[in-house]
Amino acid sequence: SKDAAQYVYDEAQKGVTQVTVNGVTFKFDNWQKLLKYAQKLLN
């Protein structure tokens, strides 16, 4: 959902490398990768 994507995006902006959405945890090597993933979700 857009809300989940926005949440992931906001978390990535904080510099975190993992985020949990609806009980599913996504882990990334660095926050830039998390940010890229979030941007994909938002598009």
Rank of each mutant, 00 (worst) to 15 (best):
S1C: 15
S1E: 08
S1H: 14
K2A: 09
K2S: 11
K2Q: 14
K2F: 15
D3T: 02
D3Q: 04
D3K: 00
D3I: 06
D3P: 09
A4H: 09
A4M: 04
A4N: 07
A4L: 11
A4F: 13
A5E: 06
A5H: 03
A5Q: 09
Q6L: 12
Q6H: 09
Q6C: 15
Q6P: 04
Y7K: 06
Y7R: 05
Y7C: 15
Y7N: 10
Y7P: 15
Y7G: 14
Y7H: 15
Y7A: 14
V8R: 04
V8N: 10
V8A: 11
V8G: 10
V8Q: 13
Y9I: 10
Y9S: 11
Y9H: 07
Y9Q: 11
Y9P: 11
Y9D: 12
D10R: 00
D10V: 13
D10G: 08
D10Y: 07
D10S: 06
D10L: 13
E11H: 06
E11Y: 09
A12G: 06
A12H: 06
Q13L: 10
Q13P: 06
Q13S: 08
Q13Y: 11
K14L: 09
K14A: 13
G15L: 14
G15C: 15
G15E: 07
G15R: 04
G15N: 08
V16A: 06
V16I: 06
V16D: 02
V16C: 12
V16M: 03
T17K: 02
T17S: 04
T17D: 06
T17V: 13
Q18N: 08
Q18W: 11
Q18M: 08
Q18H: 08
Q18G: 08
Q18R: 02
Q18Y: 09
Q18L: 11
Q18P: 09
Q18F: 09
V19D: 02
V19R: 01
V19M: 10
V19C: 15
V19K: 02
V19P: 03
T20E: 08
T20H: 12
T20R: 07
V21M: 09
V21E: 07
V21R: 01
V21G: 02
V21D: 08
V21F: 08
N22Q: 09
N22A: 14
G23K: 05
G23F: 14
G23I: 15
G23P: 01
G23Q: 05
G23T: 12
G23A: 14
V24D: 01
V24S: 07
V24K: 03
V24A: 04
V24F: 09
V24E: 04
V24Q: 07
T25Y: 10
T25F: 14
T25W: 09
T25G: 05
T25R: 05
T25L: 10
F26H: 09
F26M: 09
F26V: 04
K27Q: 12
K27C: 15
K27L: 15
K27P: 09
K27S: 15
K27V: 15
K27A: 15
F28Y: 04
F28E: 02
F28L: 12
D29Y: 12
D29C: 15
D29K: 07
D29F: 14
D29W: 13
D29E: 07
N30A: 11
N30K: 04
N30V: 10
N30H: 09
W31N: 00
W31S: 00
W31T: 00
W31V: 03
W31R: 00
W31L: 11
W31Y: 06
Q32R: 04
Q32K: 09
Q32Y: 11
Q32S: 03
K33G: 04
K33P: 02
K33N: 11
L34Q: 00
L34T: 00
L35K: 01
L35D: 00
L35T: 01
L35F: 05
L35S: 00
L35R: 00
K36L: 07
K36N: 08
K36H: 09
K36R: 04
K36P: 01
Y37R: 02
Y37D: 02
A38D: 00
A38K: 00
A38F: 13
A38S: 01
Q39T: 06
Q39D: 02
Q39V: 06
Q39N: 03
K40S: 08
K40I: 08
K40Q: 05
K40D: 06
K40V: 03
K40A: 09
K40N: 04
L41R: 01
L41H: 01
L41Y: 02
L41D: 00
L41T: 00
L42F: 07
L42I: 04
L42M: 04
L42A: 02
N43W: 12
N43M: 11
N43L: 10
N43D: 03
N43A: 04
